[in-house]
Deep mutational scan, measured.
Amino acid sequence: EEWMVEKALMVRTGLGARQIESYRQGAWIEGVHFKRVSPSGESTLRGTTWYNYPEINKFIR
């Protein structure tokens, strides 16, 4: 699984929702560690946020 939603990321990493938000707003790079995608497939600020687990795992190492 490369891309996953927040709940799956929480299960895989043990991070809480606030921790994920903090990383997203600070250290993680949009387009690398996470992306927002609307149902139409376009990038957007209001779409579902998807997280790239392999890239996040590399960051944590």
Rank of each mutant, 00 (worst) to 15 (best):
R18K: 14
F59M: 06
R61A: 13
M4T: 03
Q25I: 11
R46F: 14
E2P: 06
E2W: 09
E2R: 07
R12Q: 07
E21V: 06
T13N: 01
E2A: 07
A8K: 07
S38W: 12
Y23I: 02
I29Q: 08
W28Q: 01
F59S: 04
F34W: 14
E2M: 09
G31A: 03
E42T: 09
A17L: 10
V11G: 07
L15F: 05
K35C: 08
K7E: 15
E1Y: 09
W28M: 02
T48P: 06
V32G: 01
L45H: 12
P39H: 11
I60G: 03
S38Y: 14
T48H: 07
S43I: 09
Y53P: 01
N52P: 00
M4N: 02
R61M: 15
K35M: 10
W3N: 00
G31P: 02
E55C: 05
R12D: 02
W28E: 00
S22K: 13
Q25R: 12
G47Q: 11
E6N: 03
N52L: 03
G41M: 08
M10E: 05
K35L: 08
M10Q: 07
F59W: 15
H33E: 02
T44R: 07
R12T: 06
I60M: 13
L9D: 00
Q25Y: 08
F34Y: 12
R18Q: 14
H33D: 02
V37Y: 08
I29W: 03
G47W: 13
S43M: 09
P39Q: 11
A27C: 13
N57E: 15
V32S: 03
P39V: 14
L45W: 07
L45S: 13
N57Q: 15
S40I: 12
I56E: 00
S40P: 14
T13I: 05
T48A: 09
V32N: 03
R18I: 10
V37A: 09
N52E: 01
G14P: 02
Q25P: 02
Q19W: 04
A8G: 06
T49V: 15
I20S: 00
T44G: 14
S38K: 09
I29F: 05
A17Q: 11
V11E: 15
N57I: 15
E2C: 11
V5G: 14
Y23L: 10
K7A: 15
T49I: 15
T48Q: 12
V5W: 06
R18N: 11
E55A: 10
R18E: 14
A27R: 07
S40E: 14
K35V: 11
R36G: 06
L45A: 13
S40A: 12
M10S: 07
Q19R: 05
S43N: 12
V5D: 15
R46D: 15
Y51Q: 01
V32E: 04
S22V: 13
I60V: 06
I56C: 03
L45T: 13
V5H: 11
E1K: 07
E1T: 09
R18L: 12
V32Y: 05
G31I: 03
E55T: 05
G31E: 05
S22T: 12
R18T: 11
S40V: 12
W50T: 04
W28S: 00
N52S: 05
E42S: 10
N57G: 06
S38T: 11
P39R: 07
R24K: 11
G41L: 08
R12K: 12
F34L: 02
T48K: 07
I60D: 03
S38V: 14
G16E: 12
E30G: 03
G14L: 04
Y53T: 02
W50C: 11
V11K: 13
L45G: 14
S43K: 07
W3S: 01
K35S: 07
E30H: 05
T13V: 04
L15G: 01
I20D: 01
L9H: 01
E2Y: 08
T13D: 01
L15T: 00
R61T: 13
G41V: 08
A27N: 07
N52R: 02
R12C: 10
A8L: 12
Y51T: 00
L9V: 04
V11Y: 11
I56V: 08
G41T: 09
W3V: 00
Y53V: 06
G47F: 13
M10R: 07
S22Q: 14
G41P: 10
G47H: 10
V32W: 05
F59A: 04
K58S: 08
E42C: 08
E2H: 08
S38C: 10
E21D: 07
S43R: 06
G26Q: 10
Y23V: 02
V11F: 11
E42H: 09
P39N: 12
R61N: 14
G16A: 12
I20R: 00
G16F: 07
T44S: 13
M10C: 06
E21W: 10
S22P: 01
T48L: 11
A27D: 09
F34K: 01
G26Y: 13
L15H: 01
Q19F: 04
T13M: 06
P54R: 09
W28T: 00
H33I: 02
K58F: 07
S22M: 15
I56D: 00
I29V: 11
E2S: 07
Q19M: 08
K7T: 13
I29K: 09
R24T: 12
K7L: 10
G31W: 06
K35H: 04
P54F: 12
R24P: 00
V37H: 07
G26I: 08
R36P: 05
G31C: 06
Y51H: 00
R36W: 15
Y51P: 01
W50H: 06
N57W: 14
F34I: 03
N52K: 02
Q25L: 13
R12W: 08
T13L: 07
R12M: 12
K7N: 09
F34N: 01
Y53W: 12
G16W: 06
V32C: 04
N57K: 14
V32H: 05
W28Y: 00
I60S: 03
Q25H: 10
G41Q: 09
V32F: 07
A8F: 07
G16Q: 12
Y23E: 02
S38I: 13
H33Y: 02
E21F: 07
E1H: 08
G47C: 11
R12A: 14
V5M: 15
I29P: 00
P39I: 13
S43W: 04
E21G: 05
I60K: 03
E6K: 14
S43F: 06
Q19A: 09
L15E: 00
H33Q: 03
V32I: 12
V5T: 15
M4S: 02
Q19K: 05
Y53H: 04
V5L: 15
I20V: 06
A8T: 13
S22E: 15
